[in-house]
Design a binder for these strands. Structure first.
Lengths: 151, 151
DNA sequence: GAACAGTTTCAGGTAGCCTGAATTCTAAGT
DNA sequence: ACTTAGAATTCAGGCTACCTGAAACTGTTC
């Protein structure tokens, strides 16, 4: 428990530090291709869970439904997403990535991988795998708290 | 390299997800004690590096000097920090945590540790140590890119 | 002594979150 | 069948934590 004695050793603090450190280069990279961070994460989540609603996407992205609606509307306008009425639930709209959305994912992939490689440059391949595994575990704990989300 | 094939496996993406998931409860926790996230991180960095300048603090926190100046001014006003002229460099001001700042760190510690424990609830003690170690490695890579920062 | 680099400060801008509230639909209970 | 509760969507408005640009001052270097 010694690692927890000093704030420097808190997970929360380190997560925030790394996120802050990555944020600017990441935003620049995405902006060069014409998308924002929320757009990128929405594409990533939707690729994994096609056909979910905007509200469900919000839960999986840890933002409010109203916040996600803004991102989704922008993506619908720019043609990255399309939506269909859910036949079973009159009011719900199901979201899908368009061909253009898929192309966008392809267009940013190399640069994202490059930045990712920088981030992991002090880690062995095994370290990197463990880090990803542990981060997934943390995220899943948080998802479970969000409620109504199948992990 | 299979882990890198899908965006879901990118470090950047997972870091962002976990940060988003922790952000709201963390902000609420801090707000209940009367401080913001930037204030908390500034206190944490300054506890580790007392007597640095606001610009140096900005570099270590991955924000611009002007952004950090806002945070620091608020903290000076509320008495969490004090500053002294650097005798060697006429224009530079060195920052120190006040007794009140130390008390604030104490006041939030338990709640931060509780939230940290939730985050790590799916990890063994050994996993948690590894995760912290790897996150530090990522942060140090980013710090090195920031320039003029001793790690 | 001139150019350069770093810190601080002032001014202004914006993206990405948030809450509140109205609408519409489904599901559940009585 | 009727009512109530719960969830998704949409409209309106607000704020924080970032950002860039530019000026003033100081220490360093050539």
């Amino acid at each position: 428990m010694n690692a927890m004695r000093e704030p420097e050793g808190y997970l929360i603090y380190l997560i925030k530090q790394v996120e802050l450190g990555v944020r600017r280069p990441f935003e620049e990279l995405l902006a060069a291709k014409g998308i924002s961070t929320p757009t990128y994460t929405a594409l990533t989540v939707l690729r994994r869970w096609p056909g979910i609603t905007s509200s469900e996407l919000a839960r999986r992205s840890f933002v409010r439904a109203q916040t996600m609606a803004e991102t989704v509307n922008a993506m619908l306008d720019s043609g990255l997403l399309r939506r269909e009425k859910d036949p079973a639930h009159g009011r719900q709209m199901l979201l899908y990535i368009t061909a253009e959305g898929d192309r966008m994912i392809d267009r940013v992939r190399d640069d994202v991988q490059d930045l990712d490689a920088v981030l992991a440059s002090a880690l062995s391949e095994e370290d990197r795998r463990q880090l990803i595994h542990h981060l997934r575990a943390c995220r899943d704990v948080l998802l479970a708290r969000e409620g109504r989300v199948r992990v």
